[in-house]
Design a protein around this nucleic acid. Sequence first.
DNA 1: ACGTGTGAACTCGTTCACAGCC
DNA 2: GGCTGTGAACGAGTTCACACGT
Lengths: 220, 220
Amino acid sequence: MPTVSSEELAAAAGVNSAKLRKDFSYLGSYGTRGVGYDVEYLVYQISRELGLTQDWPVVIVGIGNLGAALANYGGFASRGFRVAALIDADPAMAGKPVAGIPVQHADELERIIQDNGVSIGVIATPAGAAQAVCDRLVGAGVTSILNFAPTVLTVPDGVDVRKVDLSIELQILAFHEQRKAGEEAHADGAGPAAARRTGTGSDASADQGPDGDVPAVMPA
Amino acid sequence: MPTVSSEELAAAAGVNSAKLRKDFSYLGSYGTRGVGYDVEYLVYQISRELGLTQDWPVVIVGIGNLGAALANYGGFASRGFRVAALIDADPAMAGKPVAGIPVQHADELERIIQDNGVSIGVIATPAGAAQAVCDRLVGAGVTSILNFAPTVLTVPDGVDVRKVDLSIELQILAFHEQRKAGEEAHADGAGPAAARRTGTGSDASADQGPDGDVPAVMPA
DNA sequence: ACGTGTGAACTCGTTCACAGCC
DNA sequence: GGCTGTGAACGAGTTCACACGT
C-alpha cells in the first residue's frame, strides 16, 4: 500500500480523522488531495520531526537491576538512541559487561559525557544518589535527564527532567479497579478481592498508555 | 502545621488555587471556610479515594532484570501494593528468592491468582510471551494488567491494560533536545552534540512527569 | 477578616463542514 | 469523485470572582 488516507489512519489509531489531518498540517502539506498521504514520505517526515533520524548518545548511571534492564532494552536502537556508556559507582562493577557494554566507574563520568557529546542522561541509581549524579551530569553538559529514582530532582533552567515512577501506573490501575468493584456494592469494608469480574464493564477508553485517561479526581 | 489553605497547596504544586479547590470539592466539602483544610483529614480522604488505604495483591510475571527491579522497588508498599508472587517460566528460577520472595513456576499461575485474590498483574516478560501470559492472567480472574513488554495486548472488555514503554520517555526528551538545538542553527545536518547548552533556555514547564507536556505535533 | 465552594466567563483543543485541488 | 487543508462552531476544562460560612 503506497498511499493512505487520513480516514484509514484515524481508524487504526482510534482518533478523529480531522484531528489527524490538522496535526499533520502543522508539519507541512505532505498529503495529496483526492489521494491521501504517501506512506514512505510521511513516515520519513514524521521520523525527522520526532528526532528519530538523529543519533542520540545516552548514558545510563546506576547499573542495578533497573539499569541493566534499560541497557538490555531492545527498543532504543530503533528510535535513534545509542547507549554510549554505562556508569556505576561500585568499583566492583567496573569492566563487567552488561548487555555487551563494559560498565565504567563514576569517576569517568565527566570525561565520558564530553568525549561522546552526550546530552541525555538516564538516572537509575538509588534515591539517595540521584541528586548528586544529576548535578554532575548537568555540570558535564547534559541538558535532558530521565529520572527513575523516586526523588524530585532540582536542576538549573534550560535542563529538562522527566521522572518515571513505576508505581504510578499501578496506582492508576488500582484506581480503576476500585471503581469497578464499587460499582454496586458500595460497602466500604469490602476488599478489592471481593467483587472480581464485574460482568462486562465496558470501559470506553481502549487505549493502552500513559497519556489520556489519567485519574484526576472524579465526582463521587 | 495542622491546617493548610488551597493557596499554599496550589503554590507548592504549581497549579491554580481555584482548580485545586474545585478538584477537592468533587470529593466532598472537606475544608473549613476562613480556615483551610485539615491536613490529616484531607490526606486520609484523598488516600481513601485513590485506593491507598486498600491492600492490592499484585503478581509480577517474568523475573528478568526488569521483573527483579520491580520486585525490589520500594515505592509499592507505601501505596497499598503487596507483591503476592513472582512468576517465571524458567524452571531454573523456581525457588530462587528475589527481593526476599521465592520465584514460582508459571504452571502455578492460575492457582496463585485465585488463592491470593489477585486482580492486578504485571507483565515483564519478553514480547513474544506477553500475549500468552496476558490470556492466562485474564482467564484466572485478573482484570487490570500493567504491560512492560513492547507489544500491544488484546484483552476482553472489562479488562484494563496500561502499557509502559521505557523508550517513549527518552523519545520525549530527545524531541525537546532537538528543539533546543534547532533554535537558531536550523542547519539540518548539525548533530545533537553540536549546540549544547543553549544559554538559559527558559523552559516554562517545570513539572517532572509523564502527564502534560507530551509532544503532540507542534508548528514549525 | 479570611478562605472555601461554585456559578459564570473564558481559553484552548477538538470536531464539523466545506472550499480547493488532484 | 475523493481526500486534503483549514476557517468556523463547539465543548471540555480552567480560571475568575464573589457569595457564603466560620
